[in-house]
Amino acid sequence: MSSLIVDIQDLSLSFQTDGSEVSILKNVKLQIATGEIVGLVGESGSGKSVTALAISKLLPEEITRFTGGSINFDGTDILKSDEASVAELRGKRIGFVFQEPMTALNPTMTIGNQLFHVIRRHSTLSKDEARARVRKSLEEVLIFKPEIVENQYPFQLSGGMRQRVVIAMAMSANPALLIADEPTTALDVTVQAEILSLIERLAKDHGTAVLLISHDLGVIAKTCSRVTVLYAGEVVESGNVADVLKNPRHPYTQALIRSLPDIAARDRSLETITGEFPDLRNRPDGCIYAPRCPKKFEKCSQSPLLLGINQLHAVACWAEHSVGGGA
């Protein structure tokens, strides 16, 4: 773990709207090493996209208040850096792929020109060299007729092809980190499979660290080596994908997996999570999941720490630690 690209420690932040303060993240811890694909899962309101945007300070400045912790990106303390130096990182050292490829593409420019501009901005290549690079980047994302696609406009491409182009743009400066926020949610399953293996292969070839955000546990299982589970802005569990998904220890992760219909017996009801999502305007003290938790006991009125069960698996739950480690 010596080559950490992203090291987020105890990150807390809130949004201020209409005079009230909403706590979005609390003590979030996330680490990504070179060449590693880390998954971030959670339901709506869990703060997974906010976490990703915080790494490159892309959150709306007027309403965001960082209340604690730190974000270290490849040796740079992001929260202490000024806007200019963080802007320098975006695109060059950190690439982005979002759910909707059209938001990242300029509808009035050909694919070739867009890539050309991105490559020129982030490198010192000459015009001819950059032209050649455009071809190469398109080939690298398995677009088989780059000479045709180059001259096409985004609307002429299918959703899967557009997402390939976006990935080519994100990877063109050879970033140290690729943030992929629900990159395949808008795509068909057969296309999704292709895009996911493309991301996997690029990460491997270039040694790029990838933060893959998804609500789909199947996508995480297929692509990632480690996963972090967020609930209401707090990390409830993290570790190796196999450990966390096959042997979940936090009651929330357990309930989430059990509520999937995939392997449920058809004659029985699906398990559900009772109770309601917490009101983050007044983040409750103690364990955030306690109000909905079947295993709740007295100790849960205090905030649990994210402690390791073993070297590769950590969980923030008192029930686990009092049984396992006697906390």
Binding site: V189, T190, Q192, A193, L196, D216, L217, G218, V219, I220, A221, K222, T223, V241, A242, L245, K246, I257, L260, D262, I263
Partner: peptide, 13 residues
Amino acid sequence: KLLASVPNMFEDM
């Protein structure tokens, strides 16, 4: 092909 494309967390780990 369709069924094979679906990432299944219970098989893909």
